[in-house]
């Protein structure tokens, strides 16, 4: 297994305190497309951030174990973690425009992981960046690398983020609601792009979303989370057609369908 999460507990030590994730276990094979669904506050994003250890150490306590490609992620030093982040794990966020540094052209931002994790020469890096931009179907790579985030649309920014997250050919891409801020047609394009990347480069995708229909289109397996626990896990078609748990049934029933009209 590429990623194995066992009995993960996330506890906070701030003023409100309390446990946000109560013993979550799941695993993910290399090249798999796994979805995590659940309503807001279910602990989806926290679980993903815990895998990359991006929760503030002085505030959040992580118990259990996370193994990723032979690394014991909860007992890895900060320096080691920096070698894994960006190189082995890519991450894309909900708001692509806010995820890019507004004062840096997108070229250097895509290039940054290469600069940090490889010994490629400047010319080689530039070639890789141009290739990455072509791979995510952005127009005119030579012009695009010099553009600033505000000159691109939301969908284009998300493509830039994907290019940057995948440029070191990581084994795992964590996508935290990557299409929520985008309109429906762009959503479809981004999903197709992710699927193609998964098939071409065999990068495992951990797709976090509250939108079940998107998860159904992209993922092969799905985890349903509620209130910090895993409610149900299984093959995507099986979950959608024969949900066992009551919560999953209610969640699926909440998807608007074409027969009901809300006008």
């Amino acid at each position: 297994m590429m990623l194995e999460v066992k009995d993960l507990v996330i506890r906070f030590h701030d003023r409100i305190g309390g446990e946000a994730v109560h013993g979550v276990s799941f695993s993910m094979a290399a090249g798999e497309r796994l979805g995590i669904v659940g309503e807001s506050g279910a602990g989806k994003t926290l679980t993903a951030l815990a895998i990359t250890r991006l929760l503030r150490e002085d505030n959040a306590e992580l118990l259990g174990s996370i193994r990723f490609m032979g690394h014991d992620m909860l007992n890895t030093s900060g320096k080691e973690m920096r070698k894994i982040r960006g190189k082995e794990i890519g991450f894309i966020f909900q708001d692509p425009v806010a995820s890019l540094n507004p004062l840096m052209p997108v070229g250097p931002q895509i290039e940054e992981p290469l600069l940090l994790h490889t010994d490629l020469s400047k010319a080689e890096r530039e070639e890789r960046v141009l290739q990455a931009i072509r791979d995510v179907d952005l127009p005119e790579p030579e012009v695009t690398i010099r553009k600033y985030p505000h000159q691109l649309s939301g969908g284009q920014c998300q493509r830039v983020m994907i290019a940057s997250a995948l440029i070191c050919h990581p084994s795992l891409l964590i996508a935290d609601e990557p299409t929520t801020a985008l309109d429906v047609t762009v959503q479809t394009q981004i999903l197709k792009l992710l699927k193609r990347k998964n098939e071409e480069e065999n990068v495992g995708i951990l797709y976090i979303s509250h939108d079940l229909s998107l998860v159904r289109r992209l993922c092969t397996r799905v985890i349903v989370m509620y209130n910090g626990n895993i409610v149900e896990t299984g093959d995507v078609e099986q979950i959608f057609t024969h949900p066992k748990e009551e919560y999953t049934q209610r969640l699926i029933a909440a998807i608007p369908t074409r027969s009901k009209r809300y006008v």
Binding site: G86, E112, L116
Partner: peptide, 14 residues
């Protein structure tokens, strides 16, 4: 706390 700084951290930027 901006997203782009978080993203930079997730890219392994020191």
């Amino acid at each position: 706390n901006m997203d782009y700084v978080k993203c930079a951290k997730l890219e392994g930027v020191p």
